[in-house]
Design a protein around this nucleic acid. Structure first.
Lengths: 243, 243
DNA sequence: CGCAACATTGAAGCTTCTCAATTAAGGTGG
DNA sequence: CCACCTTAATTGAGAAGCTTCAATGTTGCG
């Protein structure tokens, strides 16, 4: 793993436009935060950057901080005694890291090909949520979205063949990208085949074979290793929980 | 499915001792609710009972209500086009149903061998959370627990052999029972082998074979179809993510 | 340019699924 | 209370799919 000591706590300004807790745009859903609330959030936030594969925190570290991703992608994973790894989730711009009731992080968080985050001290955030109920309301909304995402993951893992899982994964990535304002169709895959395999509970060779097969069947086009164009959304969707 | 028209909206009193939102005991974790808050919650709650296999709501129904389980177990599941079913979760006394940002329920909720719930109108609850931030704080805690539970489920689904999944499932059931004040060891299984299979992404025959094998290896004793005694916690735990 | 990490492809083996038959359990009505 | 009928659970054998082991090809970074 490339370990670049690239943490930059130097940038003081909170990138509010990309930080979902603070973003006025995101908060339109539930009424916007007052300037005072935004200001208080800015005071406790610290922006950091992480390089390719660099860890934000490790499984078991005391969970004193939470994060809001402002750019890039983060991989949450746990490793099991047998040496295997389960990727619990991929998080993208706008997503929140830190919904856990435990003293220490239940997963390792690593940047997938570079990422920027806003870091909050859990204690600071707790003080602010007590003071400003709207912030807590926003957190509950984000936790609810997290639950939906985990349940989608459960359905992906539990049902169907390897090819169905990979199809569902591609469609989910596409959908999530569109939802955060990115492009829908040439799907960009920041993660490796092994990451995808550990997310879907498959061997990485199997994932690779599924990509090849989906391309041969004309459902996708592998434009490059990390860019996949969906050629037939409906067929892929049917495939992902039909055949 | 046995369809008993057993819904009893007749009982007006809120069983606060078993309703985690309202339970003073549960709220000790985060400071207790004021009598006024409890009273308001009681006003909007309605207690209902459901018989064996009876549905509280179906996938796609407008999600106008949320529930808090006061007795029994509920199975949340989605069915896929190919006819297969994924059980997204089993919920027990104290658990909350309704963390979803969608207009309609993303899953079907059914009683597993009889259950009692407190039903709340989502709109009523929203009014109360606006008025009483402590209630929202409590909801966030419950949502966080839900996320942890979903992630445990993800790890169970993604990793290991069928026997490892079944071992992990038994240990998780035991732990959850102990956590809500029930017995830890002879694990009671309210659900069928098929329910377990659909939860773990296996065929029900495979689940059955795993029970038999775990018994033959001396790790468990099947006291009856629905009661399993764990004879060797450590071996089962090692087994569940080692071998 | 060269090395190291990532990805693809092939073949053999093994786990799980599917299909099928049998046994056990649970609930209903006589 | 027992017999019956339906549902649930167990067990077996064969087929399918995934994983593992192994080799080769590709990409990207220093």
């Amino acid at each position: 793993m490339t370990k670049m000591a690239s943490t930059k706590s130097a940038s003081f300004a909170l990138d509010a436009s990309r930080c979902l807790i603070c973003s006025a745009k995101a908060l339109n859903m539930c009424g916007s935060l007052e300037p005072e609330e935004l200001s208080r959030l800015s005071q406790i936030a610290r922006c950091e950057s992480f390089g390719n594969g660099e860890a934000l925190f490790h499984e078991g570290d005391p969970a004193k901080t939470v994060y809001n991703i402002t750019d890039g992608a983060i991989r949450l994973s746990t490793s099991l005694k047998n040496g295997r790894r389960q990727v619990v989730g991929f998080l993208f711009t706008g997503d929140f890291i830190g919904f856990s009731d435990r003293e220490s992080f239940p997963w390792t968080g690593e940047a997938v090909r570079g990422a920027k985050v806003c870091r909050f001290s859990r204690a600071d955030l707790a003080r602010i949520t007590t003071e400003f109920p709207k912030v807590e309301h926003r957190l509950l909304e984000m936790a609810t979205a997290d639950i939906a995402s985990a349940q989608d993951h459960i359905v992906m893992l539990g049902q169907g063949s390897a090819a169905e899982k990979v199809s569902a994964f591609l469609l989910a990535l596409s959908r999530k990208s569109a939802k955060r304002g990115g492009i829908e169709n040439p799907v960009h895959l920041p993660m490796t085949r092994e990451d995808i395999a550990d997310y879907l509970g498959l061997a990485f060779e199997t994932v690779s074979r599924c990509f090849t097969r989906l391309e041969n069947e004309g459902l996708i086009a592998i434009e490059s290793t990390r860019v996949v164009r969906i050629k037939d959304f409906e067929a892929l969707a049917d495939f992902s929980d039909d055949e």
